[in-house]
Computed example of a mutant assay.
Amino acid sequence: MCFPLVSCILFLFGTCTAYWSGLLSSASVRLLSSLWLALKRPSELPKDIKMISPDLPFLTIVLNIVSWTTCGALAILLSYLYYVFKIVHLQASLTTFKNSQLVNTKHSRRSEKKSNHHKDSSVHHLRLSANDAEDSLRMHSTVNNLLTWIVLLSMPSLIYWLQNLRYYFKLNPDPCKPLAFILIPTIVILGNTYTVSIKSSKLLKTASQFPVPLAVGVIAFGSTHLYRIPCFVFIPLLLHALCNFM
């Protein structure tokens, strides 16, 4: 408070932390996707980009039951791992598609003109899908960085629950349980969201105006009330999840 340069130094430190955490997150996704390709090679890019899988409600119910019966931070961690798995699978599918596209390009000169024309139209359609997948990966990397901080801020609750697990199975009171009930379906929906469905949403323009004032709120309250930061981070995630339905 007395030294004016403290805020500037903290701003630079926070910017460096966000930048390097983003690079570390992207490198981790690429490494995990390489391991996934070594174990199992995905067939193709996702097709039904605007359809919600029927397994999502079941997964949401299971994770909410885990949150209610055990610890909210544990359910948040499990949903975060599910989200990371979806990103890794998308990265692996995109890598496989690019490699196959390069192979098809080498052999395209040997085909006839009619087949070349048909293949060019199909490749053009697939190239649009690849571009959408790349845009979706950029979106998911940003969401993953925000979710990482939510998980880290909820870890003290999980550590406390693990240390006292021999005394009681359900954490009570649980400070992460209210957040987990709303955050879990949001993460599950975002994990199956692509930029094509969000760009056509009428809510996107309104949702894009919230991150800046919420960042100001984090700066104002985060230094003294650290437990409020996940609530500020959660609001733009919820709005972007609602963009799939509006």
Rank of each mutant, 00 (worst) to 15 (best):
T142R: 08
L78P: 11
H117C: 02
L77Y: 06
K86W: 07
Y194E: 15
Y167K: 15
T96M: 00
S115T: 12
V151A: 01
S121R: 12
P173Y: 15
S136A: 03
P173G: 14
Y167A: 04
W161A: 06
Y168T: 05
M139A: 03
T195Q: 03
F181K: 14
S115Q: 09
A130K: 00
V88C: 00
T96R: 00
L152M: 10
L147F: 11
S201D: 05
L203I: 13
K199E: 00
S141M: 12
A133V: 01
K170G: 01
L78C: 11
I76Y: 01
S141T: 15
Y194L: 01
L171H: 12
S100H: 09
F97K: 01
K199W: 03
Y83E: 05
H118Y: 10
L146D: 00
I189H: 07
N131E: 12
D174A: 15
E134C: 00
E134Y: 00
W149S: 04
V103L: 04
S121E: 07
L204P: 15
Y194I: 02
K199Q: 02
V103P: 03
M139W: 13
F169E: 04
L77D: 03
S129T: 00
D174F: 14
Q163I: 10
M139I: 14
S79Y: 02
L165G: 08
T148Q: 01
P185W: 05
I189E: 13
A75F: 07
N145D: 04
F85S: 07
V143L: 10
S129Y: 00
K114F: 06
S141E: 13
L171T: 15
F85C: 04
L126P: 03
R138I: 13
Y80M: 04
S115N: 10
P178F: 12
H117V: 04
Y168S: 12
W149A: 05
I184P: 09
I184C: 09
P173Q: 14
N192T: 12
K170Q: 15
F97R: 02
Y168N: 08
S157D: 07
R127W: 15
P175K: 14
S154A: 09
E112K: 02
V196K: 03
I76P: 04
T105F: 08
S154W: 09
